[in-house]
């Protein structure tokens, strides 16, 4: 036997209750995204702790022997592409708020493309570093950063891509059902999610800048 929420709740949910739960669902996405940022903030704080701890300990005088640094140009490119995603997300949200959905779509897909490039560069950089992972404290922390950054970019891109994919499918379904291609649907269904995703990308952008400074500018 199969039972569904629809079966169970049909006739039980008044319009006021439905509206109450809708508000709760929207607020949950808002709070959830902030809590998600906190979770990742602690994650990267642990990485930053490792960076400064090993740098100040300088065990066996092997924090960063001979001033070796990861490829600066690649690192800068990764940061630039990550910031591009952040900027495009921000721009898309602004355009969406002003009712221009097409701009949001174009900015969103461009952002996904830029994010994929950043991700690819980060993976490639790992194969192109002028040190072995265990050769120094710096090399170790850099390897850890690369792995965590790949995970972060993957997570952020997944969120951005799924929002766009969902939008495309909903719009198509809406048109097939005879509805107009209006801004109402996407605004109602995913606006708060889109804004939250943009905030998450701002956090990713900040992380990218901080660790770019740590690893390429003031590596010590």
């Amino acid at each position: 036997m199969t039972e569904t929420h629809a079966d169970a709740l049909s006739g039980l949910e008044s319009p006021e209750e439905a509206a109450y739960e809708l508000r709760a669902a929207e607020a949950s996405i808002w709070t959830g995204s902030r809590l998600l940022i906190s979770i990742f903030a602690f994650t990267f704080a642990a990485l930053a702790f490792a960076y400064f701890y090993l740098r100040s300990s300088n065990s066996a005088d092997l924090w960063r022997p001979n001033g070796v640094t990861a490829p600066t140009a690649t690192g800068a490119a990764i940061m630039a592409f990550t910031l591009a995603v952040t900027g495009l997300q921000y721009y898309g949200v602004r355009r969406l708020r002003s009712g221009t959905i097409l701009d949001w779509e174009v900015a969103g897909w461009t952002a996904v493309l830029a994010g994929l490039i950043a991700l690819g560069l980060q993976c490639w950089e790992l194969t192109d570093v002028p040190f072995t992972p265990g050769s120094s404290g710096y090399a170790s922390v850099f390897t850890g950063w690369a792995v965590l950054n790949i995970a972060l970019l993957l997570g952020g891109l997944y969120w951005a891509e799924t929002l766009l994919a969902r939008h495309v499918r909903l719009r198509r379904a809406h048109v097939e059902e005879g509805g107009e291609k209006s801004g109402l649907l996407v605004a109602r269904v995913t606006r708060i999610n889109i804004v939250s995703c943009a905030h998450f990308w701002m956090f990713i952008g900040l992380i990218a800048v901080f660790f770019w400074v740590f690893f390429y500018v003031v590596a010590g």
Partner: peptide
């Protein structure tokens, strides 16, 4: 998340041969 990161570092030490916790290679068991 801090535990997760610590475990990730440990896994990298044991697989990718990083030296997060190896004093002799610039890391620290502390």
């Amino acid at each position: 998340p801090t535990l997760a990161v610590a475990c990730l570092f440990g896994i990298l030490d044991r697989t990718a041969q990083t030296a997060f916790y190896v004093n002799e290679h610039g890391g620290s068991s502390y």
